[in-house]
Simulated scan of single mutants.
Amino acid sequence: MTIKAFEGCIIGAAVGDSLGLPYEGLSLRRASRLFPRRERHHFLFGRGMISDDTEHALMVAQAVIDSGGDPERFSKSLARRLRWWFLGLPAGIGLATLRACLKLCVGVSPHKSGVFSAGNGPAMRSAIIGVMYGADIERMKAFVRRSTIITHTDPKAYIGAFAVALAAHLSATGATIDGAAYLAALRSALADEPLPSREGSQFSPLLRRGLGVRCCSDEEFFALMRDVAESISKNEATTDFYQRLAPNAKQGISGYIYHTVPAVIHAWLRHPANFKAALLDIIACGGDTDTTGAILGAIIGARVGVEGIPRAWIDGILEYPESVGFMKMVARQLEQARLGDSLKTVNIAFPLLLARNFVFAVVVLYHGFRRLLPPY
């Protein structure tokens, strides 16, 4: 991997997050009425801001730097950063992440803080792990598992998060890959992988008793991936694919990880090196658009780098203290950490975090009121 992949992954996530954020939760019809031009920022006077999707990706990136390649140190660093982030009063936090952060704040171990949920949290922060450790599948699995169980213990959350990490790794290599090849790589990587437990420990009680529960026994996800591969071979649009996947999802892609990840993988395989086309496709699906945009942006950004992302979209991000410059600094530190350097990460000053989150919450409230008004 190179600095290009790290920068593209982080900034790609931020761009996808900020462009998708104003569309979150809108029906397809309502979104087209309120914001007909998807190729522009709409969050704050023609500019964009990031949500928890990018913030979690940055926390994972910094925890990776802190870890020195040790999964246990990674867990401790990520737990500390999640506590700090939570105390900064972020807006729009998911219920599972909220409960997990509360447990972390009262001293629960990061190995036991997760709750049984198959939400999107782990998937939105796993791409950078794939870029960092994709050449070492076992280490990548260990880091994705630690990143997942700190908030979500449903095995589906781990499977979905790993699928994203693997996609980011393959994307960063620049290799040409189709749906069938991706599915084969996923099956191979997850063979004999133990499930996380419902209670939040690293392995399931059944596995500890020697009954051999395995991740690849969950054929539901692989059936979804086969559907993705077949759809890609037929050149089906991502919007059409998702409407078949979840025909009753009138509000677009839900926060369920087995809805999100197949749609994102479909858009990636359909436009593996075209950041703009892929992102516009996934936003057009509606629903949890900031998360789907962030995940997809991270995957394709890892291949195309900052140069492959529309400049106006990057320049349109209005953020502080986690600015685009800050993101590039984290990417540089990741590259140094990959080369074996020991580094000290930069922590955000708490007053700045609170002030930024207050501004963000006010803008979110404005959008909430705006949605009550025409055009309908």
Rank of each mutant, 00 (worst) to 15 (best):
I11D: 04
V15G: 01
L28Y: 05
R29F: 00
A31E: 02
R37W: 06
H42N: 04
G46H: 06
I50Y: 03
I50P: 01
I50D: 02
M59A: 05
Q62M: 14
V64H: 02
R73I: 06
W84Q: 13
L87S: 10
I93H: 03
K103Q: 11
K103T: 00
G119R: 09
S126M: 08
M140I: 05
V144R: 14
S147E: 07
S147F: 01
T151F: 09
A157W: 04
A165M: 13
L186Q: 00
L186Y: 12
P194R: 13
E199A: 13
Q202P: 08
Q202W: 05
S217I: 00
D218P: 14
D218V: 10
F222C: 10
E230T: 09
A237V: 01
T239H: 00
D240P: 00
F241Y: 15
Y242G: 03
N248V: 03
G252K: 07
I253S: 08
G255C: 09
G255P: 04
R270T: 06
A273M: 07
A277N: 07
D290Q: 07
G297E: 02
A298F: 11
A298H: 11
I299R: 08
G301Q: 10
I314H: 04
V324N: 03
M329S: 10
M329W: 01
Q333K: 15
G340N: 12
N357A: 08
N357G: 13
H367M: 13
